[in-house]
């Protein structure tokens, strides 16, 4: 089931009626550079790393408005925005849909962290195969309740797992990548600040980190 095929009477958080924003505030927000973040098959560590920039984040918020993020928890980006930050690789059909939505609505799309860049920890399942992993987790698991029959969770509302975990750039075009697990908050700040200031993307050796 895709988001578009959900019956009309279902209300998502991004459709929820909300009190109209103060027009002044709305104008001020719209004047800023719009940014969105998302976690696909990741642990939210990369998003947390951005928060780790502490007071630098306050300065950043003078210039940018974060539309879709772990705070707002709206599912979709309203309109076209400047920068999207993707955390996590692609492990199910909902990840693909969300990633494609981000690609369509972001002028610049940035992969952040090992999971988005090459699959990271979740991609360890690629070496074993999906069936073996599900079997280990739900059928042969030593902590499974012995009195009930083993069940691999399946329901139309549960996203279908992809056979492999994919780096995001193997699914959509990615403009830049910020390595690390998670990337250092300073590095993420540097990349965003460079782009906002028109300096372009660069990842000099003393900023680059794969762990």
């Amino acid at each position: 089931m895709t988001l578009d095929s959900v019956p009309k009477e279902v209300i998502f958080s991004h459709d929820m009626p909300a009190k109209a924003l103060d027009p002044e505030l709305r104008k001020a927000r719209e004047a800023k550079v719009q940014i969105a973040t998302i976690s696909l098959c990741g642990c939210w560590g990369c998003n947390l790393s951005l928060l780790d920039t502490d007071e630098a984040l306050v300065d950043l918020l003078d210039k940018v408005h974060i539309t879709r993020s772990s705070f707002t928890d709206i599912k979709r980006i309203p309109g076209q925005i400047a920068v999207g930050l993707i955390e996590g690789g692609v492990a199910n059909d909902e990840n693909i849909e969300t990633l494609e939505h981000f690609r369509e609505h972001c002028d610049i799309l940035i992969a952040t962290g090992a999971c988005a860049i090459w699959g990271g920890v979740p991609s360890m399942r690629n070496m074993h195969g999906l069936e073996a992993c599900l079997r280990e987790a739900y059928v042969d698991s030593p902590t499974r309740p012995v009195q009930s029959a083993p069940v691999v969770p399946h329901h139309p509302d549960i996203p279908k797992l992809t056979k492999k975990v994919y780096p995001v750039h193997e699914v959509v075009q990615i403009d830049y990548s910020i390595p690390g697990c998670p990337p250092d908050g300073r590095t993420m700040f540097k990349v965003i600040d460079d782009l906002l200031s028109g300096r372009g993307f660069s990842m000099p050796p003393d900023f680059n980190r794969f762990d």
Binding site: W118, I174, Y176
Partner: peptide, 16 residues
């Protein structure tokens, strides 16, 4: 990899 400023490999990851 840091010195050549690699961020992501453009080749398909093989997971051998």
């Amino acid at each position: 990899a840091y010195e050549v400023e690699m961020t992501a490999s453009p080749f398909p990851y093989r997971f051998p």
